[in-house]
Amino acid sequence: MTNLLTYLQEKRDRSRGTEDLLVIRNLTKIYKRADGGEFLALEDINLTIKENEFVAVIGHSGCGKSTLLKIVAGLEKATYGSVQLQGHEIRKPGADRMMVFQHYSLLPWLTVRQNIRLAVDEVLDYLTPTEKRLIVDEHLAMVNLTAAADKYPDEISGGMKQRVGIARAIAIRPVMLLMDEPFGALDALTRGKLQRQVLDIWDAQQQSVMMITHDVDEALYMADRIVLMTNGPAARIGEILEVPFPRKRNLQELRNTREYYELRNHALNFLDHHFNQED
């Protein structure tokens, strides 16, 4: 029980740090083609993410932004360069960098509760069953899914599924949260609601986040910094935007500021520019 309390306490006491959490240096990713040729997906990526920082990576589809996230997750290997989390080189997937997947990746034969419990069982295996149950219940409540806890993924909506995915990811207290277009498959109304919810959770229990998106508004609303990627092949980081808006943000108020539109247009111009170059 003490374990659980210290864990929850520790989660809440964490404040925005200045320490570098994730350091990506000179990362290059080359795919071997089936015909023996090579495909340069990512070229010379340098990026540092600080503790409790929310970073959005934005770019056109196919620009390799998902590849970048997969390399950080350890699901793919960098061809050159290094990716370090808390000073340790990333070589394989690990629960310290838990993913929220675009298509939810819930296991359809498990209920909502069992899906979260599976992750807790695997990662927090030193806790007692009671402590595990408390953590699962707490995170179900955090994403407002207590009522749907015993339903199967087929029986709930896309937005609910992604909430399960988010609860599953944060329940195992990762050092870093990786989100691969987490709202990409949702309709606009659900998306807005879920963005709000994720930000609320993030405000309550600070956490480093790296989020892939193709939605400039989403990035401006949620992130501290926005990484703009150029188009692939050989995608690079084109520019990094600081988002100066104070937390807790209100989307309606943001939309009324000139700064918001300047940043938004800047980002869109950047993306358009690189898109037109392609043609």
Binding site: L75, P93, M98, M99, L107, A119, V123
Partner: peptide, 14 residues
């Protein structure tokens, strides 16, 4: 078996 499920397993270090 969907690669998605295997990714979940790998990220959870099963």
């Amino acid at each position: 078996v969907s690669q998605d499920y295997l990714n979940v397993a790998q990220v959870l270090e099963m």
